[in-house]
């Protein structure tokens, strides 16, 4: 059912944002006239400093309650979603849109075991709980002894472990579009590499379209098919990675690129 409406992989545009203006309060607009397009099976990186509004782009897509969309449209698999109610928007999350927050460690109930929580997650998407599948997903995140992990509660594990479980859980639903907010910034180098590899694997093998928000232009350069540079709620430059990196037209972009090589 979900697939008919949003997941029909025939569509070319996984995600298309047109002239989006949104804000938290009455007067401020954190996003001004944002236009973006994520093609099927591609990786798009939004690069910007903190406060540039890049996280708000993700919040506008996931339907963060406090963020009000004023103008423009957000299309997911060519269906307009920005005017959907909270409840309808929820149906997209998980399966159609996967979301990995900046620090996913706290995204499971700390005092309940992982197993029933993952069961509940799968049941919400009418998916059968197959233990071996879950264990495979855990293993891909470098988690050994997945069996005992399922029987433990998040508060008993380290922050790094919980992050990996949370990311594995998102992957388990095999979302057709994956949104990630600084996915590697809170991780150690080892885990960051694992996550990166997993993203690339998903992208290559399953054709998952990925929208990644990061302050790290270097990372974007490695992973992205196309890049959008954000500053103060606006997109100052966007295009194919190669084009943006080699022929930047905007001064801010030039500075960012300069920063990578000066390091």
């Amino acid at each position: 059912m979900e697939d008919n409406q949003y997941g029909s992989k025939m569509n070319k545009h996984a995600l298309r944002i047109t002239d989006l203006t949104a804000g938290y309060g009455e007067d401020t607009a954190v996003l001004q006239g944002i236009s973006l397009s994520l093609e099927k099976g591609q990786i798009l990186c939004i690069v910007g400093e903190s406060g540039s509004g890049k996280t708000s782009v993700i919040r506008a897509i996931t339907g963060w309650e406090d963020l009000q969309v004023r103008e423009g449209s957000i299309e997911v698999w060519e269906n307009e979603i920005s005017r959907l109610s909270f409840k309808e928007r929820r149906k997209l999350l998980g399966r159609t849109i996967g979301y990995i927050p900046q620090n996913p460690a706290g995204s499971f109930n700390p005092i309940r075991k992982y197993e029933p929580q993952i069961r509940e997650m799968l049941a919400s998407h009418d998916t059968r709980y197959v233990r071996s599948e879950v264990e495979k997903a855990f293993a891909r995140m470098g988690l050994d002894s997945p069996g005992s992990l399922l029987g433990s509660r998040p508060y008993e594990l380290s922050g790094g472990m919980n992050q990996r479980v949370a990311i594995a859980a998102v992957m388990l639903l095999e979302p057709s579009i994956l949104l990630c907010d600084e996915p590697t910034s809170a991780l150690d180098v080892m885990t960051a590499n694992l996550v990166k590899d997993e993203f690339i694997r998903l992208n290559k093998e399953r054709g998952t379209s990925i929208l990644m928000v990061t302050h790290n232009l270097g990372l974007a350069n490695i992973m992205a098919d196309s890049i959008a540079i954000m500053k103060r709620g606006r997109i100052v430059e966007s295009g194919d990675t190669e084009k943006v990196m080699c022929n930047p037209t905007d001064d801010y972009t030039k500075r960012l690129i300069g920063d990578i090589f000066s390091l």
């Binding site: 929820r90 149906k91 999350l93 706290g106 995204s107 309940r112 509940e120 049941a123 998102v170 639903l173």
Partner: peptide, 20 residues
């Protein structure tokens, strides 16, 4: 709590949110 946001972002049904 963070875990509720987490659950909702994974598309977990409100019924289960209530249980938690």
């Amino acid at each position: 709590e963070d875990y509720v946001t987490g659950m909702r972002m994974r598309g977990v049904k409100e019924r289960y949110v209530a249980v938690n």
